[in-house]
Simulated assay, not measured.
Amino acid sequence: MRRSSAALLLALALTLAAASGRPALAQGSSDRTAVEAGRCGSVDLVFAIDKTYSIGRAIGEAKAEARRLLDLVEKVSDGDFRLGLVSFRDYIDVDLDLTPPGEGDAAATAFRRALFAIRAEGGKGGPEASDEALATAVDGIAAGGDRPQQGDFSGDWRARSRILVLITDHLPGGFDDAFRAGEDDANARAVASRALARGIRISAIYIPTTGDRPTPDPLKAEILRSYALLTGGLFLQIERSGQGAAEAVAEIIAACGAKTVS
């Protein structure tokens, strides 16, 4: 099968980025500065990833580029980093709690193993538990009781750069597969406020996959953008197919998860 010109350009960008030591960035972004070793100080990097079927390509990109992205984390933190991974549909899986300090190689290996175990399936097009997944990471919520969550998250954030990356294509809906204005959006803002109080910046990657609209859903974009606005993180919208997910993550890491104010 012949590759499209867009795919060829993406491949060229990746090649040039690897050769220069700089991450390729998401479409529409600009590489304002080279990435210096240790620029972020110590890093705690946690992902909250929607694992419904429509996110399949984005997850595939993250897996394909995992080693390069982890090398970038190592560089910007000068080897002082910890990693975590939470995935969700209408329930939550803590795939990897924040790894112990001082175990960079082991942390990278554990993260790759957890990431590659994720399968994109199900979802049925409804809102997902993105707000609650963020709460698990921000508040350090353990499994148990009536909460549909597997695994415990410590919430032991301690690094200089505390980066929480959300990847999703849908509205927050708690655990009931429904979005209620004034309730679920308020819960999302409350999670962001708690993150801000704990020095955690939330960056959101929006994938406009929903097929019932010719353009991205403005409500979804607004809510996802609010995480970044409230905490000082980044908001990135990528291709409907999920293409550009790895480059969006690279941009967030290179920026230490912080929106530059100009």
Rank of each mutant, 00 (worst) to 15 (best):
A192Q: 05
G182R: 01
Q149L: 07
N187W: 00
A120Q: 12
G151S: 12
D146S: 13
L164N: 06
D177Q: 11
V138C: 14
D184S: 11
T168M: 04
P148E: 09
G173E: 14
R119K: 13
R198Q: 15
R160A: 15
G144D: 10
A159S: 14
A186S: 10
L196C: 02
W157A: 13
L166M: 14
A181L: 07
L164V: 07
L166A: 14
A190K: 12
D185F: 06
L166D: 13
D152K: 07
P127T: 11
A192W: 02
R194W: 07
E183L: 10
A181M: 03
P148G: 12
A181D: 08
S161K: 08
S193Q: 15
A133H: 00
I163T: 14
A143M: 04
H170C: 13
I118S: 09
W157R: 11
S154V: 06
I163E: 08
L166H: 12
E132N: 07
R158N: 13
R201E: 08
A159Q: 07
G182Y: 01
A159W: 03
R198N: 14
S161C: 09
G199V: 08
A133P: 01
S161N: 11
D184A: 04
R147P: 05
G140M: 03
R119I: 12
A137N: 01
G122K: 10
